[in-house]
Amino acid sequence: MEYKDYYATLGVPKTASEDEIKNAYRKLVRKYHPDVSRETDADAKTKELNEAYGVLGDAEKRAAYDELGNAPRQAGQGFRPPPGWGADFEKGAGFETGDDSDFFKDLFAHVGGRRRQTFHTRGDDSHATIRISLHDSYHGAARTITLRVPEHDAQGRVVTRARTLNVTIPKGVTPGQQLRLAGQGHPGAGGAASGDLYLEIEFAPDARYRIDGRDVHETVPVAPWEAMLGAQIDLPTPSGRVTVTVPPGSQTGRKLRLKGRGIPAAGSAAAGDLYLMLEVALPPADTAAARALYEQMARELTFDPRANLGIKHD
């Protein structure tokens, strides 16, 4: 019989995901639908698309098609299933797509026997994103998530149901890292193992911190007298409260490094550092006393913040 390349019909690679196959089918069906298409072969093309999607859109049929069609060949080349293939198919096992070609009918012919052939194919892996806080990365956490995941129903069909999973967030995870949950992906065919679920780590936005690999950057406001005279300041960090020495004469933008206080070590990766960016915060002149202090500084301090700009004052 003449071999039909259903992947070529839908214009997708053999590695295409379920969603890619579905999207390609929907796009082509809209294009060739007899009610809207001006193509002369729109009706025949639509039947070809329906037949191709009837196989590739079903995990079990796709597995059977791939098993019989993985020998190298070109579309249109003669094709014969392996001897005896299909001998165990139960009559009426349900591989018809409706209006099928001779290739499809021959490929999935029901030729007697009392039990249905079983195809053992490991399930595909699934991917999702889980959002955590920077605190979770420092200390680890336990999360309960609900995902829409594929499962086999009582009739063996693949359906999508809500599943609740308990996830352990280990210390030291970073954005983009993936956590693998074995056996929580797409179900396998014919009793084969399910695929795995990969959860990609995403940090919730936090205006206090900027993440750079395993290093963490935090802006710390200091009073003018703390910056000019030096001070010991107490402040919270993701790893807990610390006391930091502000050197005398500090200006906005000065960076203090706390070694090993970044995202904790994990695996072969060393702990990152915590960088504190000082920002001089000016007290408001919102009382008579505060305004008097500013006026006194204006009179007594010979300070020109624009001296380095080369601006001369009369």
Rank of each mutant, 00 (worst) to 15 (best):
R161L: 08
D153M: 08
G267F: 00
G78V: 04
A285T: 15
P283H: 03
V216L: 00
A128H: 12
Q117T: 14
T243N: 07
K91E: 14
K312V: 09
E18Y: 05
K91W: 11
D66L: 00
H110G: 14
V158D: 14
D58R: 06
P283R: 09
L229N: 14
V55F: 05
D234M: 12
G191S: 08
G86H: 05
D106G: 05
D41L: 04
G267C: 05
T252N: 05
V159I: 15
L276M: 10
P81E: 07
K61Y: 03
I145L: 09
K259N: 02
P170L: 01
T302L: 09
Q155I: 06
K105D: 09
K45V: 13
F89Y: 02
N23S: 13
R116Q: 15
P83F: 08
F108K: 01
G176R: 06
R115I: 10
T121H: 01
D43T: 12
T40S: 14
G86A: 07
P283K: 13
T97W: 06
A93V: 03
E300M: 05
G176T: 03
L179H: 14
D125Q: 03
R73H: 11
A289C: 00
Q232E: 14
N166C: 02
E96G: 13
R157D: 15
A290W: 03
R291C: 00
N23G: 11
F108N: 00
P150N: 10
F203R: 12
S137F: 03
S126G: 15
L301Y: 09
E2L: 04
G188N: 11
E151V: 12
I130M: 12
T118P: 01
D124K: 13
V36E: 12
V280P: 02
A182Y: 11
R30A: 12
H33R: 10
L301R: 14
Q184D: 06
H313Y: 13
Q77L: 05
R257Y: 02
E20V: 07
V149G: 01
L276Q: 02
P283V: 01
L181S: 07
T129L: 14
P175N: 03
L256E: 03
D41G: 09
D100E: 04
E226R: 05
R261M: 08
G176E: 04
D41F: 14
L147T: 15
L165Y: 08
E18H: 11
K47C: 11
L256K: 00
Y53V: 03
K45S: 06
